[in-house]
């Protein structure tokens, strides 16, 4: 498949704009963005609050549709795909970590991970084992049967990482993973990101954290819905 082609573009945005209408004012969350991220690249996006970082991730992940422009991910023009096709695409190709509220509140840590694997079509005993292995990588094996409400913010974030990796997706989209965390917890997250870099995945992280920016192959700077050059 395309996504294995070294040097090809994993993510490509052509003249992408996203406009919100609130009452009779329009907000340009993204304005004529052109961007390419090649396979295996680790890219960070920084910028002030309201610059459009979260919007950019949502559009790349197909959670939001652009108002204008074309979004290509792994060779697919996802801005034209139907909801359900997009869902199937996200499920295997993209790992998502949100800024907060990452987990289904009625499922335990392990079940949240298993859920992602079942959506991708895996079943049976071995997904339980696999979920435990993933939890071990993020250092939360003992918390497997805790509900999100019984986990700290950092622990929830790490479970979200484990879940993002569950289906071994080629692309990871991560929104401010350390923003709400204290220093020692943040280090854990940075450690996990380091591991990802070794796995040749395409990663797009929005962050202000210098420790993460340092890991990046490239850093995008955003303001007012645009990428500065």
């Amino acid at each position: 498949m395309d996504d294995q082609k070294p040097g090809g573009n994993a993510i490509e945005l052509i003249d992408v704009s996203k406009t919100y209408r609130v009452d009779d004012r329009t907000v340009n969350a993204l304005l004529e963005i052109n961007m390419e991220i090649s396979t295996g690249e680790f890219v960070t996006a920084t910028g002030p609050s309201g610059a459009g970082k979260t919007t950019l991730l949502n559009i790349v992940g197909g959670l939001d549709k652009p108002t204008e422009g074309e979004v290509r991910v792994l060779g697919l023009t996802i801005s034209e795909l139907e909801e359900d096709v997009l869902a199937a695409f996200r499920c295997r190709r993209i790992g998502y970590v949100f800024q907060s509220y990452n987990l289904v509140s009625t499922l335990t840590a392990a079940e949240n991970i298993e859920f992602a694997m079942e959506l991708a079509g895996s079943h049976g005993e071995n997904i339980t084992e696999k979920a435990m292995v993933l939890l071990e990588t993020v250092g939360l094996k003992e918390r497997a049967n805790h509900l999100p409400g019984q986990l700290s913010g950092g622990e929830q974030q790490r479970v979200a990482f484990a879940r993002a990796l569950a289906n071994d997706p080629p692309i990871l989209l991560i929104d401010e993973p350390t923003a709400n965390l204290d220093d020692s917890t943040a280090i854990e997250i940075v450690r996990i990101l380091c591991l990802l870099k070794g796995k040749a995945k395409t990663v797009l992280v929005t962050t202000h954290d210098r420790r993460i920016v340092r890991l990046a192959d490239r850093c995008l700077r955003m303001s007012n819905g645009k990428i500065e050059t």
Partner: peptide
Amino acid sequence: ARSNDFKVMKAVGAKRKD
């Protein structure tokens, strides 16, 4: 009351059917 859960499920790849 559970809109956040549905958002997460959608991001993880849950289809409308799910």
